[in-house]
Amino acid sequence: MGLLTILKKMKHKEREMRLLMLGLDNAGKTTILKKFNGEDVSTISPTLGFNIKTLEHRGFKLNIWDVGGQKSLRSYWRNYFESTDGLVWVVDSADRLRLDDCKRELSVLLLEERLAGATLLVFANKQDLPGALSKEAIQEAMGLDDIKTHHWCIMGCSAVTGENLLSGVDWLLDDIAARVFTAD
């Protein structure tokens, strides 16, 4: 029995996953986290630092890390990369002027070795706003089709209404579970 097998067995037993949620500031990361956890989203302040939530979903224990997206915090993102199973990248679909920034930051992350094995879920958030770009437009603008290094999926969602949050996370869980828990 190789070391990898042992590790996989251990993980399997705990059925634990570590999800890292990143994106530019004002994308709605904390709102997604709180909404998913059924908390009040009307009192959220911009994140100075990070939030961690541990929650049970479909028999999995999810550790979700939500790290602030301000420019001054982005250099600290790397401190959270280790042993990440899934990366959730949150995009403000109404913020056209920073889509280029958004694309650049994501492409830097995807080169990161410690995230090489992670599944990528892109949330095209704020679909409830009338001026929001569609999921397809975001997919094109972010050049997602060029990603060959990671399993990825994009979902249009709204953290305010909760639309599609569950199906996004469910996809992520399925993809991670297929890699981590049944590969042996």
């Binding site: 009307s42 009192t43 959220i44 302040s45 301000q70 420019k71 001054s72």
Partner: peptide
Amino acid sequence: VTSRPIIED
């Protein structure tokens, strides 16, 4: 403002 306002740069 009902949450905490922030400034950066």
